[in-house]
Design a protein around this nucleic acid. Structure first.
Length: 575
RNA sequence: UGGGACGUAGGCAAGCGGUAAGCCUCCGGAUUUUGGUUCCGGCAUGCGCAGGUUCGAAUCCUGCCGUCCCAGCCA
């Protein structure tokens, strides 16, 4: 940025705060972290956090760590650690050699807990779960049966001697007490208006093997204690997290201050909500467990793995993340913005091919018998460097059923009896008739005549041909399965359901349509799994790993914008 | 109820006392061998509401209303 720039570049509120911290010398550098718990797959909501954590560090010349926030042995697994890394890497974020685990800090954390005990700021409590809740003074109904929050009461064990606490805590670690028998609590203020400050639990006893530390520990630190101190041991300057942790900040600061560690600053932003889907591990897990989708990487899932399989590009996702902004307002982003970003990226980079999803045969009656012509086709009109390819043309083709009508609706300018249309890169043809299957009543065959002077699609006489449709030569066609995906939920906000219903009732009935009989031009056979291409006029498609040598499977990533479909619907609604 | 936050267009989101950026959606129109792309144009006399301060308020003050979050030995 030159100094002559009148307008300073816009900084979101986090970058503004970070810049200020640097300016006043609160920190000398910027160091952030992305702290997932390895108990689920990464979704687009996490990607927003990733984008902020890594983005802020990068913008200020700092670093961002990847830290597995694994302090709960009941839910975490190495499988997730690996999946998480794969997805983060794929999205384009690089933590270099800084992959850390909160579980590596258990010893440090234990020492810090002892330090707090020695300072008289933590104690071993014998109260059980129910009692702790009761003493905390929450959810108490008053005489009018309205719940209110009276001040809590001190635990009878709150004033144990320091030596006794130290001894008990050591014995907790040594495994002398059964699960849940004792906890270590911070001694703060049982009358604090913020319930989190009413002597929060720091350690619980859980005899559960941890995926990394095995059975070395039977006590595990709680998030509120472990997180600020993990940040501190990594020298994290800015601990960025979502809004629901705002209320935890006083606690975060309390631990930092009293444990006398590096003073990381927590800043909260609004998490992402996306229309027509759900973004919570709990609900996504339920979709998987109840087999409403094929797995965490089902192309309909808002997981990164799902989007990758669907054909979304990392660049498109990153573009989206950059456009939604960062603020503290609870908001819900229209999924159409995501789709727009994906289309924009794919439009520039995806190769074009011709493929027919729902084929109907078209015969050119005046085509020389058995003749095949290999015509030139552009690979990507947005990118001349992508070059050209040859496409075989013959007298028997497939076209999409939707490109022919027995009686055309208003404004329809594709094929219908008497009308002419251009076969892309091929010839201009005129529909001379059609045949129907007597059983089904479906159109079985479309007859056309072609104009030999229009090879390649040009009209030498400059006649106006409004429609251009795609096609596939029948004898050269490569069969494939098309999986057409749509929004998982029809409702914009799937979680908003009437009494007695659940979000599962909002699941869309047509989030997946399978086309078993699709046909593509021969070049499609060479596409590698995982590659996203455009099937002209139909949309972007990604070759699925389920593909076999005999049969390719393509997932529809996203449709092209379809002005005609919109127009037709409007005309139908009017009628 | 107590505590913590947030309200600018259909959806996001700038704005930081000088007269409402931008993006998506939507609606027009031009170009087009993808009804795609691209390009032009339209879309808040108004910033949750009501008062107040000021020459001037989305920005400052007061009061109200609405929405979200917390009340796990989850993170």
């Amino acid at each position: 940025m030159s100094e002559s720039d009148e307008k300073t570049e816009y900084l979101d509120f986090i970058r503004e705060a970070v810049a200020e911290d640097l300016r006043i010398g609160r920190f000398k550098e910027v160091h952030t972290r992305f702290p997932p718990e390895p108990n689920g797959w990464l979704h687009i909501g996490h990607a927003k956090a990733l984008f902020i954590d890594f983005g802020v560090a990068q913008d200020f010349g700092g670093k961002c760590n990847l830290r597995m926030d694994d302090t709960n042995p009941e839910k975490e697994d190495m499988e997730y650690v690996e999946a998480l890394q794969k997805d983060i890497k794929w999205l384009g974020f690089d933590w270099e050699d800084r992959l850390f685990f909160a579980s590596d800090y258990y010893e440090t954390l234990y020492e810090l807990a002892c330090k707090l005990i020695r300072k008289g700021l933590a104690y071993v409590d014998d109260l059980d779960e129910e009692q702790i809740k009761e003493y905390r003074g929450t959810n108490v109904p008053d005489k009018n049966n309205i719940t209110y929050t009276p001040p809590g009461r001190d635990s009878p064990w709150r004033d144990r001697a320091i030596e006794e606490n130290l001894d008990l805590f050591e014995r907790m670690r040594a495994g002398e007490f059964p699960d849940g028998a004792k906890t270590l609590r911070a001694k703060i203020d049982m009358a604090h208006p913020n319930l989190l400050m009413r002597d929060p639990v720091m350690y619980r006893i859980r005899r559960e093997p941890h995926y990394r530390t095995g059975d070395r520990w039977c006590i595990y630190p709680m998030y509120d204690f472990a997180h600020p101190l993990s940040d501190a041991t990594e020298g994290v300057t800015h601990s960025l997290c979502s809004l629901e942790y705002e209320i935890h900040r006083p606690l975060y600061d309390w631990f930092v201050r009293n444990a006398e560690v590096f003073p990381s600053r927590q800043i909260e932003f609004a998490r992402l909500n996306l229309s027509h889907t759900v973004l919570s591990k709990r609900w996504l897990l339920r979709l998987v467990r109840e087999k409403r989708v094929s797995g965490w990487d089902d192309p309909r899932m808002p997981t990164i793995a799902g989007m990758r399989r669907r054909g979304y590009s990392a660049a498109g996702i990153r573009d989206f993340l950059g456009r939604i902004g960062i603020a503290k307002t609870d908001s819900m982003v229209d999924i159409q913005l995501l789709e727009h970003c994906i289309r924009e990226d794919l439009n520039a980079h995806a190769r074009r091919y011709m493929a027919v999803l729902n084929p109907v045969k078209l015969v050119i009656e005046n085509w020389p018998e058995d003749q095949v012509e290999w015509l030139d086709a552009v690979n990507n009109p947005e990118d001349p460097a992508a070059g050209m390819r040859k496409v075989p043309f013959s007298g028997t083709l497939y076209i999409d059923r939707d490109d022919f009508r027995e009686v055309p609706p208003p404004k329809y300018y594709r094929l219908y009896p008497g009308n002419q249309v251009r076969l892309r890169y091929g010839y201009i043809v005129t529909c001379t008739g059609y045949e129907k299957d007597p059983e089904s009543g479906e159109v079985a065959l479309i007859k056309c005549s072609y104009d030999p002077a229009t090879r390649g699609g040009d009209a030498p006489d400059n006649r106006k041909v409004k429609g251009t449709i795609h096609w596939v030569s029948a004898e050269h066609a490569v069969p494939f399965t098309g999986r057409l995906y749509d929004h998982l939920f029809e409702a914009e906000r799937p979680m908003e359901v009437p009494e007695g219903k659940t979000f599962l009732d909002n699941l869309s009935a047509h989030s997946l349509t399978v086309e078993q009989d699709a046909k593509a031009e021969p070049a499609v056979a060479d596409i590698a799994a995982g590659t996203t291409v455009q099937f002209e006029r139909m949309g972007y498609f990604c070759k699925d790993p389920d593909s076999t040598v005999q049969r390719a499977v393509f997932n529809r990533t996203v449709t092209l914008k379809d002005t005609w479909a919109k127009l037709e619907k409007r005309l139908q609604d009017q009628a």
